[in-house]
Design a protein around this nucleic acid. Structure first.
Lengths: 230, 230
DNA sequence: ACAACGTGTTTCGTTATGTGCAACAAGAGG
DNA sequence: CCTCTTGTTGCACATAACGAAACACGTTGT
C-alpha cells in the first residue's frame, strides 16, 4: 500500500505549504534551502505553481499563494466553516478566551477555525492546522465522544458522552485548561467540536455553560438549511 | 522568461483543481482520462496529493480535496472575503439578484465570492473562479476605474470613475445586465468591486443605489480594524 | 572605488525519475 | 458464465528533473 513516486509533486506541494504558512512569503532560495534542494530546482517548482495559479510572485521576488488557491478553496469550503465563525467569535468575545473548531482526521484532532478574543490582553494562540492526538486534550475527547466507540479509547470518554462536555487540565500544554463540547451532525457526517483554551482554571470552569450553548447553537445552524451561496 | 519544466507538478496541480471543481470527486481513471495520461500515472499523482494531505480518498475510491487544503486556505484567507460575505448576502437578499465580489488579476476580473439570492426563483449562476476580461462587463470596468489609469483603457472608464458605478447591458452574456461599484482600499492594495447580475434591465437600474451602498459599506468595514482571528 | 557576496535566471550533461505497458485481483453487469 | 471496468503493482525504457556551472544584477562592506 505504499505506492511511492512523484517526488517532484511532493516537493512542489511542500513548497506550496511553506509559502502558505509564511505570512510574508518566501524567496526561491529560501524554499530551496528548506526543501534541501538546489535553488534552481525550487525556482522551477515555484514557476510551475505560478503557471497554475497556485502561487504568485511578488515585486521583491517573494512567492505567496495565488488566486487559484483562494477560488478553489472557496468552491470547496464546507458550510460548517461559515456557520462556525460567528459562533466562535461570540464565544471568544463573551469569555475572553481563544475559541476553536476541531475535526477528526485519523487519530488526530485538527483545528480548522480559530478565533482569538478581542482586545489586547494576553491570549493563547492556536493556529489553524494544529493537530493533537484525539485521546489528549478537551477537543479530542469531545470528538471521541461524538464518534462511534473505538476499541482502546480512554475510559473517561463515557463520562464526556454523558455530560456533553470535556474539561481537561494541562494535558497538552502546561498551564493550559481546555473546555470542549461536540457538535452533532448527520449520522454519516464527520463530527466536529467547539473548544476553548485558557490559562486560568476558574475561567475554564465558568466557561462550561457557554461552550455547551455554542455547540448547540452550531448544531442547530447546521441542521437548518443555510443560505445557498455555492 | 519561459522557465519550462516540472511536468509532474503541473499535472498534479491540474488533478487537484479537477477534484476540487467536481463536487462529487473523481476516480483515478477519470483523472487520468482528463489529463490524457495512463490510469496508473493519475493513480500515483493522486497518491502523492493524499500523502501531503491535499486530497483524500473516499470509501468508493473517489478523490476529494483534503484537510490540508482547507487549513492552508484558512490560514491565508484575506480579511476581504470575511468582510464581503455579509455584504453580498444582504445585497442578494434585498434585490433578489446574484451578487459577486471580483478582484483583478492580469487583464481579467476574477470572481472570489458569489452569493445567489434566497428562495427558489430563477437565478443567474456565476461561479467563484470565473474570469472575464477587465474591459468587458460591469465588474471589470469598476476595477479599471479603481486601478491607476492604463494606456488603452476604454473611454467610458472615466465616466465610471466619476459616477462611482458601472452599468453594462448584455456585454458579456446575452440577456444579462450588470451593475458594479469599486471597493476602495489602501493605496498599495489591490482594489475589488461589488457587482450584481440580473436579466431584467429595470432591476439593474433600480439596483444602482444599493450596489453603491454595499461597496461603501465594504470599504468602511475594511478600513475598520476587523476582529483578529489570525 | 572596488570587491565579495547573495540573489534570479538560463543552459547543459547525467542520472534518477516518471512514464506506459502488462498483468493480476476484485467487483459490477449482463 | 463471461465481459468490461476498475484499483493496484512490477518492470524496462525514455524522458524529464536534477545539480552544477555560469552570467547578470543589485547589495553590502571596506
Amino acid at each position: 500500500m505504499a505506492a511511492e513516486g512523484s517526488q517532484t509533486l511532493e516537493r512542489g506541494l511542500m513548497a506550496l505549504r511553506m509559502i502558505a504558512e509564511e505570512r510574508d512569503g518566501l524567496t526561491a532560495s529560501e524554499v530551496g534551502a528548506r526543501l534541501g534542494v538546489h535553488r534552481s530546482v525550487a525556482y522551477r517548482l515555484l514557476g510551475a505553481l505560478v503557471r497554475q495559479g497556485f502561487a504568485a510572485k511578488d515585486d521583491a521576488n517573494r512567492y505567496r499563494v495565488g488566486l487559484a488557491f483562494f477560488t478553489l478553496a472557496e468552491l470547496t469550503r464546507p458550510p460548517l466553516l461559515d456557520a462556525a465563525r460567528p459562533v466562535l467569535r461570540d464565544l471568544a468575545a463573551e469569555l475572553g478566551v481563544t475559541a476553536c473548531l476541531v475535526v477528526p482526521e485519523g487519530n488526530d484532532a485538527v483545528a480548522v477555525a480559530v478565533v482569538e478574543p478581542p482586545g489586547s490582553g494576553a491570549r493563547l494562540s492556536y493556529r489553524v492546522g494544529n493537530r493533537d492526538p484525539l485521546d489528549l486534550g478537551a477537543g479530542g475527547l469531545a470528538l471521541l465522544a461524538a464518534l462511534p466507540p473505538r476499541p482502546g479509547e480512554p475510559g473517561r470518554v463515557a463520562e464526556v458522552r454523558a455530560r456533553g462536555y470535556a474539561l481537561t487540565c494541562e494535558e497538552l500544554i502546561p498551564g493550559v485548561f481546555g473546555v470542549a463540547s461536540p457538535v452533532v451532525r448527520q449520522a454519516h457526517e464527520q463530527p466536529a467540536a467547539v473548544t476553548t483554551l485558557t490559562h486560568r482554571e476558574d475561567l475554564a470552569r465558568q466557561a462550561v455553560p457557554a461552550v455547551l450553548a455554542a455547540a448547540e447553537r452550531l448544531t442547530r445552524a447546521l441542521a437548518a438549511p443555510g443560505p445557498r451561496d455555492h
